[in-house]
């Protein structure tokens, strides 16, 4: 199986008044049609990695990579216009809070229709039909009603489903989900993950799932990359998480409280400077 996405030595730096901040410092991985989890704490560079692939890094940042190719296309040298066409059409991204990523003054249905029509030439009726189908696919019970609602009129879980529907309407091959369920309640969270999981399996998409929640990611993904201070410290199969070797990964797993274990005080992470080296 050929890799869908190949990244080698990806670096993202932000120049600031006080010096250069290195958000991502040499990340390499390749992704097939699988579910890859990227886990790390805030400031680990996990989100910036996702944004760099997507081409959504703020303009003042500098990106460099030895290799950054999507399905054989070199993303580094791609003109902005083609990159835009790629984005949304073949690569899609789901962000944490649907409240900020959906247009508040446009109905959900129209937003999805517009997304579809910027990528494909389809008639009005067909676009509407496909949008309704898509809303049904993300398990929205009454798609006709939701079609005409504005984002503020739906719950967080519903909004995130609508967001997923919008991202999937163009049939992307790669989906980057940045904390897609962190703003949702636990029970809703699992529903959304279920939908995502089925769609990925049915359509043969590649999925990058970025999250701070090591346990959730390992239960959902095939493979997990653990990031710390802009670097990959460990890469392992999700089922092997219990056998993680890096002390950071182990520490991260250990420090979470568990329902069926009585550990007082909780073990805390003893950060070693050599991890960041």
């Amino acid at each position: 199986m050929s890799a869908l996405l190949e990244i080698e030595d990806l670096r993202v730096t932000f120049p600031t008044r006080t010096g250069v901040i290195e958000a991502v410092r040499g990340v390499s991985f390749s992704l097939g049609r699988e579910r890859l989890g990227i886990v790390g704490e805030s400031g680990s560079g996990k989100s910036q990695t996702g944004r760099a692939i997507m081409g959504l890094t703020p303009p003042q940042a500098r990106i460099s990579a030895a290799k950054l190719s999507f399905d054989g296309v070199d993303l580094r040298s791609l003109p902005a216009k083609q990159r835009r066409a790629l984005r949304g059409n073949r690569i899609a991204m789901i962000l944490q809070d649907p409240k900020y990523s959906l247009d508040p003054v446009m109905t959900i249905g129209r937003q999805i229709v517009e997304t579809l029509r910027t990528h494909e030439k389809v008639g009005n009726a067909e676009a509407r039909e496909r949008t309704l189908q898509m809303l049904e696919a993300v398990q929205i019970r009454d798609p006709k009603r939701v079609f005409d609602l504005h984002p503020h009129e739906v719950s967080g879980g519903m909004g995130q489903r609508a967001m997923i529907a919008m991202m999937l309407i163009a049939n992307p091959e790669l989906m980057i989900a940045d904390e897609p369920t962190s703003a949702l309640d636990v029970t809703v969270q699992l529903d959304v993950l279920n939908i995502l999981d089925r769609l990925v399996a049915d359509r043969g998409m590649g999925l990058i799932f970025i999250s701070h929640d090591l346990r959730l990611v390992s239960s959902f993904c095939d493979r997990v990359i653990v990031m710390y201070a802009g670097k990959v410290v460990e890469e392992l199969k999700a089922s092997d998480l219990g056998r993680a070797e890096h002390p950071y990964t182990r520490g991260l797993l250990d420090c979470m409280p568990r329902i069926d274990a009585d550990r007082h005080p909780l073990p805390v992470l003893d950060r070693k400077p050599e991890w960041a080296a």
Binding site: E41, S42, H212, D213, L214, G251, L252, C255, M256, P257, P265, L266, P267, V268, L269
Partner: peptide, 9 residues
């Protein structure tokens, strides 16, 4: 973050 949560708890 999880590691900070442990410290605060």
């Amino acid at each position: 973050d999880a590691s900070v949560q442990a410290e605060v708890l």
